[in-house]
């Protein structure tokens, strides 16, 4: 990065440190924070969408839909996360390739499973074998986000259906007496009012999701934990910047990062709760009304 970094073995003190902290590898580490935040920013809305769909399905008047919704929440909530992160991702990946194989290579005669090998025709590889590594990374991250969203979506679904059930029946009846259809009651009355009941549960899930991001590392995403471990490990002179085991310092950085993230989230969620309670028929909403009066 800096001109004086060309021969690190001649440097010491702060100059050495300034060069050390600006190596290509360290920039990969800094970028991995952005990666984690991006994946969070994608996963959270996706999980919310999964949860909303699940909650809607679970209270649908149409029986098969209700069964699907309830099975989804019950199954995903009941299966240990680690199984999802280790088994499901592989199954999903192979499933996609299996479908591509059926579509693109209908004339392929060899079996797909040969012993422990999973072998589809080269055209069916997702991503394609000749695609650059970045595409493979994005695809891997995509699978990870999908899995996270599926798992957390089941919990969100449960929270949301609880919140939907908590909206006072009288509110819905009022809507019906104005001649609104079931759909209108759902959109105009139930959904806007349920968030205040859902928020405590959702904020819990957000915090858990935030703290579960190091699991990305299990899914092969080169996240902050991967780089902290890689950079912190003792380095011999095979490397340009040899140093002893510094993992402690790198993990301290992660500690600060995650504490900062949870603190910011807490502040934000408290504000959101106050806003959502405004004008609601809840104890919080009532307290706000009295304070204003």
């Amino acid at each position: 990065m800096f001109a004086y970094c060309s021969d690190p073995s001649q440097l010491d003190g702060l100059t050495w440190l300034s060069c050390y902290l600006t190596t290509g590898k360290h920039f990969d580490f800094y970028w991995s924070f952005v990666t984690v935040l991006t994946l969070l920013a994608v996963t959270a809305p996706a999980a919310l969408a999964f949860g909303f769909a699940g909650a809607m399905a679970a209270r649908a008047p149409f029986l098969p839909l209700r069964v699907i919704g309830k099975t989804y929440t019950a199954m995903v909530r009941g299966i240990p996360d680690i199984i999802f992160f280790l088994f499901f991702v592989i199954a999903l990946d192979q499933g996609i390739e299996w479908i591509m194989h059926q579509v693109r290579c209908p004339d392929w005669s060899e079996p797909i499973r040969q012993g422990l090998e999973f072998r589809v025709c080269p055209e069916a590889k997702v991503p394609h074998g000749s695609a650059p590594q970045s595409v493979h990374r994005i695809y891997g991250a995509g699978l990870a986000v999908f899995t996270f969203a599926l798992v957390f979506g089941a919990f969100v679904a449960n929270v949301l259906s609880g919140a939907m059930a908590a909206v006072p029946r009288a509110q819905l009846e009022t809507g019906e007496s104005y001649g609104m259809s079931q759909g209108q009651v759902f959109r105009r009355i139930l959904v806007p009012q349920m968030w205040v009941y859902a928020l405590p549960g959702l904020s819990n899930l957000w915090m858990i999701l935030l703290k579960a991001t190091p699991l990305l590392f299990l899914l092969g995403v080169q996240d902050v934990v991967y780089w902290a471990r890689e950079l912190g490990g003792a380095k011999t002179s095979a490397f340009e910047y040899p140093h002893p085991d510094w993992r402690l310092w790198y993990f301290l950085v992660l500690l600060v990062f995650y504490l900062a993230m949870t603190k910011v989230s807490e502040i934000f969620l408290t504000r959101l709760q106050r806003r959502l309670s405004h004008g609601q028929a809840t104890a919080d909403g009532e307290a706000q009304r009295r304070a204003a009066a």
Binding site: T23, G24, K25, E230, G233, T236, A238, F239, E240
Partner: peptide
């Protein structure tokens, strides 16, 4: 693996080396 110098490791530029 990228963690077993001098066979294979990730160098300071973040690339596989060794």
């Amino acid at each position: 693996e990228g963690a077993y110098p001098p066979y294979n490791f990730i160098n300071d530029a973040g690339e596989v080396d060794g």
